[in-house]
Simulated assay, not measured.
Amino acid sequence: MKQKLVRVLVGNLTAWIISIISMAPLLLILFNSLKDSQSASDMNLKLPAFPIQWENFSVVIEKGKLFGSFINSCIYSLGSVLLCCLLSSLAAYVLSRNRTKLMNIIYMFIVLGITMPVNYVALTKVMMFLNLNNTRLGIILLYTAMQLPFSVFLIYSFVAKIPVELDEAGVIDGCKPLRLFASIILPLLKPAVATVFVLTFLNTWNEFVSPLYFLSSSAKWPMTLSVYNFFGMYFKDWNLVCADIVMTSLPVIIIYLLGQKHIVSGMTAGAVKG
């Protein structure tokens, strides 16, 4: 009994230590975003002195043009998320239900994209050939293509746990393929699709390299590029830089906190269903 209690205490203490270490950078940025320029230059974990510099955020919004970049990030992330959820669920359903040799090859080809690096030279030529360079549609399609392999892999394993008898019952009742998928299969995929939604949103919101290469117009930049540009102009004002980082990270943190339970339920439901 004592040994079990000691193990529990040691485990909890270790978890607290790791959590504190992980939270230190976030607290550092948050505290310094509420200080004046001179105090923030020390970059320490001291609490901000009164009066708290709330105006740092208004300065960042005005000078960093965050409102426009926030709208761009929402367009890119939500557009790619919706496309990715729809296409990956359809592809995973078809590939999982048709276990032919050709379908297995196609599935392995798609999943191979998880490990393959992005060739930006070839990708640039493709984007230019399709006239998608420096366009919002091009970035949305690019984000979708980059997130599809893992999304298909995740939903594929979930679909495999759904009994085929449900498909047969739907066909007997007169359901056509699209109605069968939309009315019977898709509601059962809700935990997996929610997981794909959250993970895809987090990955696309934080994407930096792709828009840097394929968006030459600053009016189309997402928030990640705005932070990069803002840091280049105000690298001496760490209070403003930290405020910019806080405002850029806030949507990601909110989405993660709201979708955390869906990620866990999606992973566990796919493992035990059927």
Rank of each mutant, 00 (worst) to 15 (best):
Q3F: 12
K4D: 06
L5P: 00
G11A: 08
T14Y: 12
W16C: 14
I17H: 06
S22G: 13
M23N: 01
L26H: 08
L30V: 08
F31M: 13
N32H: 03
N32G: 02
Q38N: 12
M43S: 11
N44F: 05
N44H: 06
K46G: 13
P48Y: 02
I52C: 07
I52K: 07
I52V: 15
W54P: 06
E55F: 09
N56S: 02
F57P: 03
S58H: 10
V60T: 04
K63Y: 08
L66M: 15
C74F: 14
Y76Q: 10
G79S: 03
L82G: 13
C84M: 05
L86K: 06
L90C: 10
A91R: 10
A91I: 11
L95D: 00
R99H: 05
L102M: 14
M103H: 07
N104Q: 11
N104R: 12
I105W: 10
Y107G: 00
I114Q: 02
T115D: 09
T115E: 10
N119E: 04
L123C: 02
G138T: 09
I139V: 15
Y143N: 14
M146P: 00
P149H: 07
F153R: 03
L154W: 05
L154E: 01
I155D: 02
I155L: 07
S157V: 04
V159P: 00
V164Y: 11
E165M: 13
V171H: 01
P177L: 11
R179M: 08
L180S: 09
S183E: 12
P187G: 05
L188V: 04
L188R: 15
L189K: 13
A192C: 04
T195H: 04
V196M: 10
L199P: 00
L202G: 01
L202N: 08
L202Q: 12
T204K: 01
W205Q: 03
F208D: 04
S210R: 09
L212Y: 09
F214C: 05
S216A: 14
S218T: 13
A219T: 13
K220F: 04
W221G: 02
M223Q: 11
T224N: 07
V227H: 02
V227M: 14
Y228H: 11
N229P: 00
F231T: 13
G232E: 07
D237L: 04
D237N: 14
W238N: 12
L240Y: 05
L240I: 03
I245F: 05
L250A: 15
L250P: 03
I253L: 15
L257N: 03
Q260E: 02
I263T: 03
A269G: 09
